[in-house]
Design a protein around this nucleic acid. Structure first.
Lengths: 220, 220
DNA sequence: GCACCCTACGTTGCGTACAACACCGGGGAG
DNA sequence: CTCCCCGGTGTTGTACGCAACGTAGGGTGC
């Protein structure tokens, strides 16, 4: 899950938060959709109060936008926004990867290796290919890596910007070559970490993000 | 003020938010202090509801920490946290400064110049020195610079981590030389921007942060 | 004397009712 | 015909009351 602590939330608030976040991240709630407090409350069988709190927190995360007396809308991102997001990722995530190399444990390596292999299975061309199933392990891979860096500030800065919905919501935009590269990068990061080479791991992450950026951001 | 948009807030909520944030940033509420909802509500003459919302948003900003059924506490930062914060600043703020060079207007330059000069007056050794008064213009300087970068994602990432209270709350920890350097950096950034040299400006910002880090973080 | 439990209190979490504000439609004046 | 004003309607913003949870203190059993 997210590394940001799940404070407060006597279950109802937390439930509303998790539910809404999942719906947005999975794309069930498209960008720009209006979110009425009563509507959500009724759908979840709750009062407006916890829903309202959840919306406030989602707004702080940047997943929704609140307009006074006009309700909440799912945030929509422009191409420029995407570009800015990748700029932040490129500035922070390789550094986090470098740091991760210093703290990595065998258990971490096994887990990352497992995720990387699973993604290569799911992403391999052929009848078994399932691009939608790639989303979760990919998210998990990057989250674990971030966690291993033992750099809370870095993690928070990224979490509050990356807004995983837009960035990792789908792999359908990847062409075959880019996808293959992306999956190979994960494996290479594991290899670099296993070798204890932070510079190498960071460099691969830079490649990984550069590749993703080229796919996502419609360049000039 | 903060560049993060001030959505929602039918005055009461916004007022509570602004009031609490100011109190924390100014150090009136020390780190670790317990914040009771009723206590704050009564002091501001409001109900618990807007106070609660304000606390939720402050928690999202990282200024307070919420424990379930145990209330809110003003966040306290460890030396490691500070180090992590500076790592993020060093990764992002120079880049923002570089970008600012591309969008800078004469009006912006005048404003930055005014702030830099004012800080040099206030910080000059002698009877007129007022270190406390430095805090606001310094905050404003960095905020303006960030705004000029036209990179919302960068700004958000920084805003959610820098937690200005710890970083810029006081200049009393600066020794004379470090303070002089810090003030000179501001002026040099203005000069670099006026010359339209983003690389130069970014480099100065790196120096600026390195200097601050050396002062703040008791490093080995 | 010490550990454990149980009760009483204060706090937060949630639900509900009311007030304030913003949008939308019709009607009238120019 | 167009523009402005004005009430209707649905939304969000706030206040208040109750319930649930955590904590601290005293009391009892060992």
């Amino acid at each position: 899950m997210t590394s940001t602590t799940e404070r407060r939330g006597g279950r109802a608030s937390e439930r509303a938060l998790a539910d809404l976040r999942e719906a947005i991240l999975d794309g069930d709630l498209a960008a720009g959709v209006h979110l009425g407090e009563v509507e959500i409350a009724e759908r979840l069988g709750l009062s407006r109060t916890p829903v309202r709190e959840a919306l406030t927190r989602l707004a702080a995360e940047g997943l929704v936008e609140l307009e006074a007396h006009r309700g909440a809308r799912v945030t929509s991102f422009s191409s420029d926004d995407l570009d800015g997001i990748f700029a932040v990722r490129l500035a922070l995530e390789p550094q986090a990867t470098e740091r991760a190399a210093a703290h990595v444990t065998p258990a971490d390596l096994d887990e990352l290796d497992r995720l990387a292999r699973r993604m290569q299975e799911l992403g391999a061309p052929g009848p078994g290919q399932d691009l939608d199933a790639l989303v979760d392990p990919n998210r998990e891979f990057h989250a674990r890596l971030l966690e291993m860096a033992h750099a809370p500030a870095l993690a928070v800065a990224l979490a509050n910007v990356v807004h995983t919905p837009v960035v990792t919501r789908t792999f359908h935009t990847y062409d075959a070559d880019s996808l293959a590269r992306s999956l190979a990068h994960h494996a290479e990061i594991v290899a670099a970490l296993r070798a204890g080479d932070g510079d190498w791991a960071g460099a691969v992450m830079r490649c990984h993000l550069g590749n993703a950026r080229a796919v996502m951001v419609v360049g000039p």
